[in-house]
Design a protein around this nucleic acid. Structure first.
Lengths: 174, 174
DNA sequence: AAAGATTGAATAATCAATCTTT
DNA sequence: AAAGATTGATTATTCAATCTTT
């Protein structure tokens, strides 16, 4: 026979389902908005992380760790961004195995052009849905969930500095 | 020059980033757990929706509307589920254009076997991160965000009754 | 040998076009 | 003609294997 009713009707399914729906709807909305500036959500994410980093550059492996992509997925994403002229690769001088992804002038121009409308969209969604206090609460609750399911990301936002050249805290908005 | 600092450092980027990270980590955790019962998150989602439906069947178009997949994406997902013997297709007798996806006995057995561990995982994540009151708050805040960014889903969860509370749990298991 | 990055092969998602039924 | 579903072509993602450098 089938499973017991308390398993099928468990209230946590509702929370999980809303998390998926909220994320899907949020992503779709951002995608639609960014499309007007000829950026995908993924491209915006990469360019934004580079923009926030001193020197406008990040190691491929760091970028992969910060995004939802694997190393090979990121390699191909940077391939496309490089082909579009928004990013260029540079060899890491201190460790020649490594490669930097560096924001080009065109890349900075593109992300800069998209940013005002993107922030306006974020304000419309978040400020339209929540009071300031609720938004603080929501952010805190999200952080706790993130820490529970993705401890690596939680650690990554408090990086230990190794080279004076790099500052991963600036690259990690959360 | 680059964009103004208040756009780059806007706190909403943090909330948006946490939403993405929380969702990614949550999905990865569910995927890892379900894998032990030979189910992907997507398969679990489809089978769960069929399990919760009277007759254990849904129209292809309804299933597509409830998931994040397009019509063609759902067709191919059902192809794979059918090849695995967990779902079968049936022609809709009243409208022969339509097709039902129907849960097979093997499909019900598979989802039933996976459900206890899946619910346990949900409890570990949610109850481990939140007090009962916080979980209620989090669910309510998620619902508001979902309604703001995905009004169609909000409507879809009120299938045929207009009274009473929306039955999210029935419509959106994972 | 191990780390960082890339490449080849396989899988899955989408859009646009097509087919059947209404 | 329009609705429901499927198919072909394209694009993107992953795993496993490879190459270079440490």
């Amino acid at each position: 026979m089938g499973p017991t009713d308390d398993l099928v009707q468990h209230p946590h399914h509702t929370t999980a389902g809303l998390l998926v729906e909220a994320m899907a709807g949020f992503g779709a909305r951002m995608e639609k908005e960014l499309d007007q500036h000829h950026l995908s959500v993924q491209w915006f994410d990469v360019l934004m992380r580079l923009l926030r980093t001193p020197g406008h550059r990040l190691r491929m492996s760091d970028l992969a760790a910060q995004t939802t992509l694997t190393a090979s997925g990121l390699t191909r994403a940077i391939d496309r961004l490089e082909a579009a002229g928004l990013v260029r690769r540079e060899v890491c001088p201190s460790d020649r195995r490594g490669a930097f992804a560096v924001l080009t002038d065109a890349g900075e121009a593109r992300i800069s052009a998209a940013l005002p409308a993107h922030v306006a969209e974020l304000e419309e969604v978040f400020d339209g849905s929540y009071t300031p206090a609720e938004l603080v609460t929501f952010t805190e609750l999200l952080r706790r969930l993130r820490d529970a399911v993705n401890p690596a990301a939680a650690c990554a936002s408090i990086p230990e500095r190794e080279d004076g050249d790099r500052d991963e805290a600036a690259a990690k908005p959360a």
